[in-house]
Amino acid sequence: MALDRYEWLGRLAARVPDDALVMSTYIGAVSFEWADLTDEHPRTAHLGQMGDVIGMAVGLALALPHRLIVALDGDGSVLMELGQLVAMGQTRPENLVVWVVDNGCYESIGWNTDGPRPTATAASADLAAMAAASGVPHTATVETDTELDAQLDAAFGGEGGCRFVCVRTTPGHAKVAPRQTDGFEDKYRFVRHVERTEGRSILHLAEQDRQLMADPDSH
């Protein structure tokens, strides 16, 4: 069995706490659907790409251990860099929950007459098992609404813990608009949100400008 992506992402979006941060892939329909479902909220960094979403989420979780970090990745991306699972299992951030859209195919490259090109999860690869074998303490594969509800409750109902949830998903995407942005704009939007909510500066302040404005006698 498998779930409809737009529908289950919607249920996930409804449960993500306001003060959480989200690291999402920024290529393909997952990003477009998530942006549509969350009304482009700046708490989401649409910055991850093939093979780096979980790694970036681990870094973000370690940097901000008091914030819940939610990662949104795809099966093709996880498969590209399995070392990320090792890093996640080794560091085990208690504030990190990874959700994988596992549709068993490389959907974003387009379909031919036989359908989408399959990924290794369509055959034998089991991402949740690999995460567990890497040391991630809480892992699950979700195939039904009931299983999804249980994982949403575990992740956001106070149980906490470092989690990896692989959601078997039917191929195909919702009719939402593509995002008209790029990685630079997404980075600034996300970092400004972190600065605002953390009450601290992250982006560099030019030294000459700082000195100029710090000196009231300067003209």
């Binding site: 979980i54 790694g55 870094g59 973000l60 940097a63 972190v194």
Partner: peptide
Amino acid sequence: CNEGVGFSICAGAWLGG
């Protein structure tokens, strides 16, 4: 165990300050 993963982790940490 892989420098590419290390770079991704560093990048994510920078986003967090």
